[in-house]
Design a protein around this nucleic acid. Structure first.
Length: 813
DNA sequence: AGGGCGCCTG
DNA sequence: CAGGCGCCCT
C-alpha cells in the first residue's frame, strides 16, 4: 500500500473522522440539515423565487391557484367594477385579455411600480409576517434562506435577500440589516444612511490607527466578499460561495497560513482576526461595492420600467384591436382617441368577468400555455378576419375602425397587429426574464477554474415545503435559463459550513467538481466523485431500501452527511487553530466516505476517471445507500468496477447500504458468525468483492463485539448485585440487557426478535457469568471459550432474508 | 499468503 | 461503525 507520507497523518486523521458514516447519523440528520443548508440554498431560492415572481407578474396567471402566494395577496385586491357585456366572441379572447389586463391590474395595484418594486413590497410584507422566525436562525451563513414554501411565489425574497446580507464582515455595520417590513424606498434610504454611517466610522478608525503598514487586502477577496454581501440573489455566486470561501480561506493573506494551509478559519473567525485596518479598507470596499450595486439596481429598475411601458403599450394596442372588434360586432362605434380609456374601463369590467368565468381555467396555465393560447386565439381571429375580408372586400375598405359591420378592416389590421403583438409580447417577456435572470446570474466571477464545484444548495425546505404545483412549474421554468443553474429541488445540497455549529470532525459534504484538477492524489481521488445529484434527499425508507443504486454513481455527499455538524471552532481534531477550520473539500474535512475512498484510491488504484458519469437521477437508491455504496464501490477490484454501467438497471449494488446494515443487524439475531458464503447468499443484491465481504464480516464482528460487551457488562453487574445462581441469569424481553441489544440491532423495534436469540443471549450471559464467577476472566483470552460456545449456537437465518427486499417484507409484518 | 477473527482506537 | 493491528488457521 503505497501511502503518501506527506499527508499520511492528516489522511489518517481525516479518515478517522470522516469514514465514520454511521447509520445512526443518518437518522435525524435532517434536523441539522436545516442548519447546514444555508447560504447557497437561500440564494438560489431567492433567485428562483424572484424570477418566478417576475414571470408571474407578467403573466399573472396564478391567481387563485395559489391562495397563499404573496403575489396573490398583494395583487389580488383589484376589484373592478364590472360593466361588461360578455359575448361569445369576447370570451374567445378572454385568455389573452386576461393575460394582458391582469398585468395591467398589477400596475393598477401598484401605480408606477416596477416589477422589482412590487417584488420588494411583497417581499417586505411577507417578511414582516411569516418569515421572521425562519430567518432568525440563519445568521450563520449570512443569507436569509427563503423558504420556497409557496412555490415560486416567494419571488420577492430576492430583493430583501440582496439587501439583508448578513455575510458582511461586520454584521453590525450591515446597511441592510433592516427590519423586514420596509418598503423599497425605505430600503434605499436606510442603505444610504448606513453607508454614510459606515464611512464615518471607517474614517474614524483610520484616523485612530494611522499606521500599520501595508496590510494588503486582496481586492479579489474583498470584491468577492462584497459580492457575496450584495448579490444574494445570484445563482452563480451562491453556488460558488462555498468554494470561494474555502478558496479565500486557503489563500487568504489575512491570516498566517498554516504550514500546510490545512487550517482555515471560517469567516466569522477570520473576521474577528482582521486587523482593524483591514476592516477599514474592507469596509470601504464594501461600501463602494454597495454603491455599485445600488446603481445596478437602479438601472435594472429603469429597464424594467421601460419594459413595463412597452407592455402597457402592447396592452393598449391589444385592447384597441379587440375592443374595437368586439364593439364593432356589437355595433358600437369607437373613437380611436377614446380607445385607451374605453379599453381601460372594459379591462376592469373584463377583470371581474374573467374572474367569474375563467379563473379556474386560467389558473393552471403557465406563461407558455398562455402564449400558446393567445396565439391560437389570434390566429382564429385572423382566420375570421380573412374570411370576412374575402366576403366583404371592396365594401368595407373605406370604413374606419369601429364603423359597425365593417370589421374586416379591423381584422386585417388585427392580423398584423396580432402578429406584432405576439412578437412583442414574446420579446417583452423574454426581456423581462432575461433581465431578471441577468441580475441573478451575474457574469461568473473571474475566479480560476474551480477546484471545487459550486455548492448548489437548496434548503431542505425544497424537499419539504415545496409541494404545490406551483413549485414544479416554477422549477421547470427556471431550469430553462441556461445561465442560471437551478438545481432540482432535490438535486443538490450545498454546504456552507456553519461556523461554530458543532464538531468539525464530522463529515463535510464532499463537493468536488467533475473537472477536478489533480494536484495530488487526494484531490484527484476526491474529484473522482464529483458531481452532486441527489437521487433523493429523503432518508431512505425501507421500501426503497434494497433498491438499485447505479453502480457508478458517485455521490459526493450523501444526504446523511449533510446533516452533520460541519464545524467546530472549538476543536478541530487535527490540531489546527481552534476556530480555523476548513470546510474545503480539499482540506481534511472530507466526508468520511470520501476519505475512505481516497484511502483506497490513493493507495494504488487510481480508478476512476472513466466512470465519472453522474446519474442525474437515481430512482431507487437512497442517500444513505449511496453513502455506503460509495465507500464500498471503491473497495473492490477495479476490474469489478469497470463493467458497471452508470445507468445499469441492475439491482446488484456495488456497495452496501444502510439498509444492508440494518438487514445484517437483524440477521445477527439468528447468526452471530455467518460465513462468507452465507453472507453472499443473503446479500445477493450486492456485488461481492473482497472488500464487500470483509465489510460484512467486519459488521458482524462489530455486532459481536457489542454483544459480548453487553453480556459481560450485565454478567458482572449481576454478580455485583449479588446474584449467585446461574439460573437467575436469563435474558427476557423486558430486561435491560435485552433492551440494550434490541436498541442496537433493532433500533426501530420494528422487528420481532426471535425467541432463539433470547435463548442464545441467555446462554451467553450465563457463560460470562460462570466464567467471571470462576475467575476465568484473569486469563487474557478467557472469552475465547465463550466465543467458541456461542459460535455454535447460530441458527438458520430465515429465507426471507435472502430477498433483497426482505426488510420491507419483514417489517411490514 | 490470505482469510478470518478479536481487540483497540477514533 | 471503520481502520489498523496482531493473531490464528489453512
Amino acid at each position: 500500500m503505497p501511502d503518501h507520507d506527506s499527508d499520511s497523518f492528516l489522511s489518517r486523521q481525516t479518515k478517522r473522522r470522516r469514514v465514520d458514516i454511521g447509520v445512526k447519523r443518518t437518522v435525524g440528520s435532517n434536523a441539522s440539515n436545516a442548519a447546514a443548508a444555508t447560504t447557497t440554498s437561500a440564494d438560489i431560492a431567492h433567485a428562483k423565487a424572484a424570477i418566478f415572481g417576475a414571470m408571474n407578474s407578467l403573466n399573472s396567471h396564478h391567481h387563485g391557484s395559489d391562495a397563499n402566494s404573496m403575489d396573490c395577496s398583494m395583487v389580488q385586491p383589484h376589484g373592478h367594477a364590472g360593466v361588461v357585456t360578455a359575448t361569445n366572441s369576447e370570451s374567445k379572447s378572454n385568455v389573452l385579455r386576461k393575460l394582458l389586463k391582469r398585468a395591467n391590474s398589477y400596475e393598477d395595484a401598484f401605480p408606477g411600480a416596477t416589477i422589482i418594486s412590487q417584488l420588494i413590497k411583497s417581499n417586505m410584507a411577507k417578511n414582516g409576517r411569516g418569515e421572521r422566525g425562519e430567518r432568525g436562525d440563519r445568521e450563520d451563513g449570512g443569507f436569509p434562506r427563503s423558504g420556497l414554501s409557496s412555490g415560486g411565489s416567494e419571488a420577492p425574497q430576492e430583493d430583501a435577500c440582496s439587501n439583508s446580507s448578513q455575510d458582511s464582515p461586520q454584521e453590525c455595520l450591515s446597511p441592510f440589516g433592516h427590519p423586514p417590513a420596509l418598503g423599497a424606498f425605505d430600503l434605499e434610504r436606510l442603505n444610504d444612511e448606513h453607508l454614510r454611517a459606515k464611512r464615518a466610522r471607517v474614517e474614524n478608525i483610520i484616523r485612530g490607527m494611522s499606521h500599520s503598514p501595508g496590510v494588503v487586502v486582496p481586492t479579489r477577496h474583498l470584491g468577492e466578499r462584497d459580492h457575496e454581501l450584495e448579490q444574494c440573489g445570484r445563482e452563480r455566486e451562491r453556488e460558488m460561495d462555498g468554494d470561494r470561501d474555502r478558496e479565500m480561506e486557503m489563500n487568504c493573506p489575512l491570516q498566517p497560513p498554516s504550514p500546510r494551509g490545512e487550517v482555515c478559519s471560517r469567516e466569522n473567525k477570520r473576521k474577528q482576526r482582521l486587523p482593524q485596518q483591514q476592516q477599514q479598507s474592507f469596509t470601504q470596499l464594501v461600501c463602494q461595492r454597495k454603491e455599485q450595486k445600488h446603481e445596478e439596481r437602479r438601472q435594472l429598475k429603469l429597464q424594467l420600467e421601460d419594459m413595463q411601458k412597452q407592455l402597457r403599450q402592447l396592452q393598449e394596442k391589444f385592447f384597441q384591436i379587440y375592443d374595437s372588434t368586439d364593439d364593432s360586432e356589437h355595433d358600437l362605434a369607437h373613437d380611436p382617441g377614446n380607445m385607451s380609456e374605453d379599453s381601460a374601463g372594459r379591462s376592469d369590467a373584463g377583470g371581474d368577468d374573467r374572474t367569474d368565468r375563467s379563473d379556474n381555467e386560467m389558473s393552471d396555465l403557465d406563461p407558455g400555455h398562455f402564449l400558446d393560447r393567445a396565439r391560437a386565439l389570434l390566429q382564429e381571429q385572423a382566420l375570421l378576419a380573412e374570411g370576412d375580408k374575402l366576403r366583404r372586400e371592396g365594401l368595407v375598405w373605406g370604413k374606419g375602425p369601429g364603423q359597425g359591420p365593417s370589421s374586416s378592416m379591423h381584422h386585417a389590421e388585427g392580423k398584423l397587429l396580432a402578429e406584432t403583438l405576439k412578437q412583442e409580447l414574446n420579446s417583452a417577456m423574454n426581456q423581462v426574464v432575461d433581465t431578471v435572470v441577468k441580475v441573478f446570474a451575474k457574469p461568473p466571477r473571474p475566479t480560476p477554474p474551480q477546484v471545487f464545484p459550486p455548492l448548489p444548495m437548496l434548503p431542505e425546505r425544497f424537499g419539504v415545503n415545496v409541494k404545490g404545483p406551483n413549485f414544479h412549474t416554477a422549477n421547470q421554468r427556471l431550469q430553462c435559463f441556461g445561465d442560471v443553474i437551478i438545481p432540482n429541488p432535490l438535486d443538490s445540497f450545498g454546504s456552507i459550513p456553519v461556523p461554530g455549529a458543532n464538531d468539525q470532525t464530522e463529515a463535510l459534504p464532499l463537493v468536488v467538481r467533475k473537472t477536478q484538477t489533480e494536484h495530488h492524489h487526494q484531490s484527484s481521488a476526491v474529484g473522482a466523485h464529483g458531481g452532486h445529484h441527489h437521487p433523493s434527499l429523503h432518508p431512505s425508507s425501507l421500501s426503497t431500501s434494497m433498491g438499485f443504486s447505479p453502480p457508478s454513481f458517485r455521490h459526493p455527499f450523501p444526504l446523511p452527511l449533510m446533516g452533520y455538524p460541519f464545524q467546530s471552532p472549538l476543536g478541530p481534531p487535527s490540531g489546527g487553530y481552534p476556530g480555523k477550520d476548513c470546510s474545503s473539500p480539499d482540506s481534511m474535512d472530507l466526508s468520511r466516505e470520501t476519505t475512505s475512498l481516497r484511502t483506497k484510491m490513493s493507495s494504488g488504484h487510481h480508478v476512476g476517471h472513466h466512470h465519472r458519469s453522474f446519474s442525474p437521477t437515481n430512482p431507487g437508491s437512497t442517500a444513505e445507500g449511496l453513502s455506503l455504496s460509495l465507500i464500498k464501490s471503491e473497495c473492490g477490484d477495479m476490474s469489478d468496477m469497470n463493467d458497471i454501467s452508470p445507468y445499469s438497471g441492475s439491482t446488484i449494488q456495488e456497495g452496501l447500504s444502510p439498509n444492508h446494515l440494518k438487514k445484517a443487524k437483524l440477521m445477527f439475531f439468528y447468526a452471530r458468525y455467518p460465513s462468507s458464503n452465507m453472507l453472499k447468499i443473503f446479500f445477493s443484491d450486492v456485488k461481492f468483492n473482497r472488500c464487500i465481504t470483509s465489510q460484512l464480516i467486519k459488521w458482524f464482528s462489530n455486532f459481536r463485539e457489542f454483544y459480548y460487551i453487553q453480556m459481560e457488562k450485565f454478567a458482572r453487574q449481576a454478580i455485583n448485585d449479588g446474584v449467585t445462581g446461574v439460573e437467575e441469569m436469563s435474558v427476557s424481553r423486558d430486561c435491560e440487557l435485552y433492551r440494550a441489544l434490541n436498541m442496537h440491532y433493532n433500533k426501530a423495534n420494528d422487528f420481532e426478535v426471535p425467541e432463539l436469540f433470547l435463548e442464545v443471549a441467555t446462554i451467553t450471559l450465563r457463560e460470562f457469568f460462570n466464567a467471571i464467577v470462576a475467575g476465568k476472566d484473569v486469563d487474557p483470552s478467557w472469552k475465547k471459550a465463550i466465543y467458541k460456545v456461542i459460535c455454535k449456537l447460530d441458527s438458520e437465518v430465515p429465507e426471507v432474508f435472502k430477498s433483497p427486499n426482505c426488510l420491507q417484507e419483514l417489517l411490514h409484518e
